[in-house]
């Protein structure tokens, strides 16, 4: 894989749309996504809520290609993720190369950070810009330090994940995901593994990203207050289906669906 291959990926593309049509996903006999249609507009901030096992995390994971879909299509920025168009206009299964091309527009932040323990914070951030996007060591370091500054961790650049607190790790992980300037960012319960007093710093970073508006954001979270504040739209999932979709104030304050009501009631009790 030579660096120049990917150089074009570097130009900032701005926020991109995500379109899903008829997406099915099952693990063995367990259906986790069923006939899912979903449109996320460029720059939109969508919060996905639902009980565990509702398929909400799977939406992010299939968009990141961590799990492959069984049927249906997903388009990111107008390009098919799992399919390629043949000369006759038909869709055929995409090659790995094609998937990698489209995937370079997507970034993801994980619940358990998944930082590389053998690399310092700055090395974690520099890895993809250098190795995937062909940036020079110097440019990548520049980007990395700016991002660390943005997440308030500049003095921790040379610290390894083992030396950082959970909240700091998650902020480094966000910086790592931002370093490749993705058009779509996926956040999978990014505050669930943190001690309550560390959640605030991470949410502040997410707010900054939202304000810049350079990227489409899809977030799975249990922080309802934060969802209300940041989201353009909230999607309620249950048993692999999207059962409610609306602006946060409508959906969270005045849910139409019985399942949404009971779910919000259960979350509020915590």
């Amino acid at each position: 894989m030579n660096a120049t291959d990917h150089h074009k990926d570097l130009s900032p593309k701005g926020a991109a749309s995500v379109r899903m049509r008829g997406v099915d996903k099952a693990f063995g006999s367990l259906t986790v996504l069923q006939e899912l249609d979903l449109d996320v507009e460029p720059g939109e901030r969508v919060v996905i809520i639902g009980p565990s096992g509702s398929g909400k995390t799977t939406i992010l994971r299939v968009t990141m290609t961590l799990e492959r879909i069984d049927s249906g299509t997903i388009q990111v920025g107008g390009q098919h993720l799992y399919h390629e168009e043949t000369s006759s206009g038909q869709l055929k299964e995409a090659s790995e190369k094609h998937i990698r091309g489209v995937r370079s527009n997507i970034g993801m932040v994980f619940q358990h950070f998944n930082l590389f323990p053998h690399m310092s914070a700055i090395e974690n951030i520099m890895l993809a810009p250098v190795k995937v996007h062909g940036k020079s060591q110097k440019d990548a370091q520049q980007i990395g330090m700016e991002l660390l500054d943005k997440v308030g961790l500049i003095e921790h650049a040379n610290h390894t994940p083992g030396q950082l607190s959970g909240g700091q790790k998650q902020r480094v992980a966000i910086a790592r995901a931002l370093a490749t300037q993705p058009s779509v960012m996926l956040f999978d319960e990014v505050t669930s593994a943190l001690d309550p007093e560390l959640v605030g710093d991470v949410l502040n970073v997410l707010r900054d990203i939202a304000e810049e508006g350079k990227t489409t954001m899809m977030l799975v979270t249990h922080e309802m207050g934060f969802a209300r504040e940041i989201a353009d739209r909230v999607l309620m999932f249950d048993a692999g289906r999207m059962i409610e979709d609306g602006p946060p104030n409508d959906l969270l304050s005045n849910p139409q669906h019985e399942r949404t009501r009971s779910f919000l009631g259960a979350v509020a009790e915590h």
């Binding site: 990698r100 370079s104 994980f110 590389f116 995937v132």
Partner: peptide
């Protein structure tokens, strides 16, 4: 999770 992070960063 380590492998998943590398996929998310689009490493080959």
């Amino acid at each position: 999770g380590q492998t998943e992070a590398t996929i998310a960063l689009n490493l080959n």
